[in-house]
């Protein structure tokens, strides 16, 4: 598994460096977008993973689900920080400022707050069983904000953020070559997440 992952990652990174043409007017640094999109994607996946395992824990009361939920959140926290920082760098390149509370930036910042709150809560409760229950409940409570962040915030504030890859019109405005590499990067990062999630020591 690790061998495959190393080769796949190396190939993807090489493709991004050597095959993808530099973005017009932005240069090579703009290739950070190939890091930004996958990390942002995984931070959202990890959030739902954590909530999913929290729900499984509450149903079954088996502590292994609590461990998985906690691990997803820890990994998600790292990925969301990476996504935020890379996004801020890209934002400086294209919009001229690191931060301006664009709806997407608001959403990702709330995600940081939720992950941070969840992990703080975990560290504040000492009893293992109570900690599992309490953090599972909080994890599910925080999922309720998702419809607000996804559907309502973009309506309340004006956005400069590029359309997501799967935009509302349902068409892809990308070259095939770039699209393939981007999808490879997404798949690669998702496998890295799953690999880390299955590690015992964390």
């Amino acid at each position: 598994m690790l061998k495959f992952l190393t080769i796949f990652t190396t190939l993807t990174v090489a493709a991004i460096i050597f095959i993808v043409p530099p973005v017009q007017g932005l240069g090579n640094l703009a290739k950070i977008i190939y890091f930004h999109i996958p990390t942002a994607w995984v931070s959202v996946i990890a959030f739902f993973c954590s909530a999913f395992f929290a729900a499984k824990f509450l149903k079954s009361q088996e502590l292994k689900f609590d461990k998985l939920s906690a691990k997803s959140a820890k990994l998600g926290f790292i990925f969301v920080l990476l996504a935020t920082i890379s996004g801020a760098i890209f934002s400086k390149l294209t919009w001229g400022a690191y931060w301006n509370w664009d709806p997407r930036q608001t959403t990702i910042f709330v995600l940081i707050l939720i992950y941070g709150a969840y992990l703080t809560l975990r560290s504040a409760v000492t009893d293992e069983k109570i900690r599992a229950k309490v953090s599972a409940v909080y994890s599910l409570l925080s999922v309720l904000t998702v419809p607000f962040l996804v559907f309502i915030i973009p309506r309340m504030y004006f956005s400069l953020h590029p359309e997501p890859i799967l935009n509302q019109a349902g068409k892809l405005e990308m070259d095939t070559e770039i699209l393939i590499i981007l999808i490879a990067a997404l798949v690669d990062t998702t496998i890295i997440f799953i690999y880390l999630l299955r590690q015992k020591a964390m």
């Binding site: 709330v110 939720i114 709150a117 504040a124 904000t145 962040l149």
Partner: peptide, 12 residues
Amino acid sequence: LFPILLFPVTLP
């Protein structure tokens, strides 16, 4: 701890 937990949940 309380405001940290409450804020993201009550953002809507």
